[in-house]
Simulated assay, not measured.
Amino acid sequence: MRLTHGMILVAVLALSACSRPQGELQLRDLRAFGAGPDEFSVLPAKPLEMPADMASLPAPTPGGTNLTDQNPLADGVAALGGRPAALSGQGIAASDAAMVRHVARNGVSSDIRMTLAAEDDAFQRNRSRFTKFRLFRDVDRYHEVYSSEMTDPYAELRRFRRMGVATPSAPPPERR
């Protein structure tokens, strides 16, 4: 009788380890496992202000931005003395036009993002075949799947130094 209970328990644990949400692969597990709130999920709005001219207000767009929405990246650029308007996509900058022409001299694929996304999805599905078996939910599988695609930074550092390229100092490698 004890043996059957143990076998049932092992079978239930094995089946629960195989479960995962359908759809996209979940290589990164970024959920907060603590009991408290996630302090990064709440973004306070800027204070409301009455504009000088009501006609200067943008037309409301569903899912669009609001004047009181926070934009941390633009706020950081402004705080450092930059132009936050430069963050909005305005095409290729004049300073980069020559480089873009050189890179595109042999042709440019208009659907490169979709092609790369499909290839990456196939790569993830192929490499993460056995990462579905999880005993613990908070394990990050990203590095396990992409380990063959990563470069060794210290090997690259040694290679560049042998070639005579001036390289900055690097922290000592972590001991595992």
Rank of each mutant, 00 (worst) to 15 (best):
G91C: 11
A52I: 06
E144W: 03
L80K: 09
K46C: 01
D152Q: 01
F123N: 12
L57W: 09
V100L: 07
L57K: 10
M1K: 05
A122F: 04
R141N: 15
C18E: 12
M114Q: 10
L116M: 14
H5M: 07
N106A: 03
A32P: 03
L157H: 15
A117I: 12
K132T: 09
M1P: 03
Y154I: 05
L73E: 15
A117G: 08
P47H: 13
E24T: 15
P62R: 02
L57A: 06
A74E: 13
D96G: 02
G34F: 05
A118C: 02
R162K: 10
D152V: 00
A118W: 02
D75I: 05
G23Q: 01
P172H: 06
R134T: 11
I8W: 03
R20Y: 02
A98Y: 03
R83G: 15
R83Y: 12
R141Q: 08
P173M: 01
R129K: 00
P62L: 03
S128L: 00
M50G: 10
L13H: 05
D111C: 05
A17K: 12
A155Y: 05
R83M: 11
L73W: 06
D38V: 14
A118V: 04
A166D: 13
L73C: 05
Y146D: 07
M99Q: 12
A117V: 08
A85N: 11
I92T: 06
R127T: 10
A93Y: 01
M150F: 09
G82Y: 11
L9Y: 08
A155M: 09
Y154C: 04
R176Q: 15
M7I: 05
M1W: 10
D120G: 07
S19P: 00
R141P: 03
V10R: 04
L157A: 07
G81T: 03
I92W: 00
V108R: 13
V10P: 06
P172R: 12
I8C: 07
G76T: 06
M99L: 09
L87A: 09
A74H: 10
V145C: 03
L30I: 01
L87S: 14
P44K: 10
S148C: 02
G23D: 08
A93N: 02
M1S: 02
S41I: 13
G91T: 09
S169P: 01
S41P: 01
L80M: 14
F133M: 10
F136W: 12
M99Y: 13
R134S: 04
R129G: 12
G164T: 04
E24I: 08
T61Y: 06
P21M: 10
G91I: 05
F136L: 06
Q70S: 14
Y146P: 00
P172W: 03
R31W: 04
P72K: 15
K132P: 07
A78F: 04
H5D: 07
Q22N: 08
P172K: 15
E119Q: 14
S19H: 02
E39C: 06
A35P: 13
A35E: 15
D111L: 08
G36R: 02
S88R: 15
L25N: 07
S148A: 10
A52T: 08
R31T: 09
L27H: 04
L48H: 12
A93L: 03
V139R: 12
D152R: 00
G34D: 11
L157C: 13
P21T: 09
G63E: 04
A94R: 15
L157I: 05
S95A: 04
T68I: 10
S95T: 13
G34Y: 06
P171W: 08
P153L: 13
D152H: 00
V165N: 00
V165S: 00
E149D: 13
